[in-house]
Design a protein around this nucleic acid. Structure first.
Lengths: 248, 248
DNA sequence: AGCGAGGTTTGATCTGCGTCAAGGCAAGGA
DNA sequence: TCCTTGCCTTGACGCAGATCAAACCTCGCT
């Protein structure tokens, strides 16, 4: 853990603690200086909307701390979350002027943003930024496709188990955790947000969480704090293969 | 239409008729020559598997003619299609050695492939290939997210209408068609493949197609050939906003 | 302490789609 | 010509999850 923090600090891009996983991961000092010119921070409180779908969006950026979501809404109000943005995830698309989705802060967040125009110009001059962005986009595409399997074919119980497993995994890797038993963390989403992510109603989410608790697949302290006594058991409930389904 | 064919031929990459939309879209003559060195064709018959998930994959490439699918399978056999590959769509991921999904030909197909290693090297030397690949990947990501909305929130009827609309649209743009009424085309998928795409069973697919036919949203000649008397009506049934939901 | 709001849980009931089962249709092979 | 095979359609029935409804818990505010 101490090691991990040390790594964070020695690799910052200006003062972003996420540089080693972000778009500027492979930039040298000169390039970081150049990015610094067009960089600024934005912060939002839990519940605030960062951008609305269809609005002009003149920046791109990464989440530094906190959690945001990407959602799509139909005219009659049905909502589907299409992305969960955890620290170091990238938002915005070079070459597009308007946001395609609603971006909402579900906890207080800080984002490290670059003005879009100069960022695009720099991308053209600095191929490895584009390459890094391609890698990140391909990872996102894989995540989206894993989610399609979940939405199309998994049962409500499997959906909940999958979501808990994913948050546990991301949380563990963010905290540099190893192989210890009894993983523990907070659910950063309301029941309603989970429902929007999983293609369920909030009542079904609540019932299935209760059921998993009753069956000792998860334990809960209060409504948000989760402990996982046996990660393999959880992954089995999620219907994933043992390694969690992701090729690296 | 004649114009369109002329355009195809004057832009070929070697003899790929899809060059203007493929990864080599912005290559100059020297670069095309270089690609030519590492290029070869593969063809498969309807029903054949191109690669199995987890198998080593030493090439990347584009579909030239025909239609292929990307599917994911759970251990108990539940299947979800996660991508539909139409002519000009790209397959394979630079930087990964094994396929993450099953790739299957649903019609006879021809693919234009590049050996992966030299392609990756050329990508490093030729930034605009990577940029083009990024554009294509971002488009795929948008398509995947639109599909997440469909899988998570649409009814069976809306799912079928959406699928028909998407095939109609892709087909129309491939054939350079304009704004004429009464769009007509073949469904390139079996009922079972549609079910795998839509997160339904084949019986439900069949029933909903019958229902849309009964309600004159679509007309059918035989089991595969479709005519759409009123595209706006179809899009309404699909639950999309008028323009089809996609920002460009 | 009392109150209200947002989030959560739980119960009762309904329904869209899955499951199981039986046939239909067209093409190809003997 | 008949039989097989693959694909599609239709019907009957059941269930997982949606919908409607009520109440609870935990804050923060007055």
């Amino acid at each position: 853990m101490d090691m991990a923090m040390a790594t964070f600090n020695s690799h910052d891009c200006g003062d972003c603690p996420i540089r080693h996983r972000a778009v500027c991961a492979r930039c040298d000092d000169r390039e970081l200086d150049e990015l610094e010119q067009i960089k600024y921070y934005r912060s939002y409180e839990a519940g605030q909307t960062v951008v609305w779908s269809g609005d002009p969006m003149d920046f791109v950026g990464s989440v530094v701390t906190g959690i945001a979501t990407l959602t799509q809404t139909m005219e009659d109000g049905r909502r589907q979350m299409v992305g969960l943005l955890l620290p170091s995830d990238f938002v915005g698309r070079p070459g597009r002027e308007r946001a395609a989705y609603d971006v909402t802060a579900t906890t207080d967040i800080v984002m490290c943003c670059f003005r879009k125009k100069p960022f695009e110009e720099m991308m053209l001059r600095t191929p490895h930024i584009g390459q890094r962005l391609l890698e990140m986009t391909l990872d996102e595409l894989d995540a989206a496709r894993e989610w399609m399997l979940l939405l199309g074919r998994k049962t409500a119980r499997e959906k909940i188990a999958s979501l808990v497993a994913i948050i546990a995994k991301r949380d563990a890797s963010a905290n540099g955790a190893g192989r210890e038993r009894a993983v523990t963390f907070d659910l950063p989403l309301t029941r309603e947000a989970m429902a929007d992510y999983l293609g369920l109603t909030l009542e079904t989410v609540s019932r299935q969480i209760s059921a998993l608790r009753r069956d000792h697949v998860i334990e809960m302290q209060g409504k948000r704090h989760v402990t996982i006594p046996d990660m393999d058991r959880l992954l089995e409930e999620a219907g994933d293969d043992a390694d969690g389904g992701m090729l690296v």
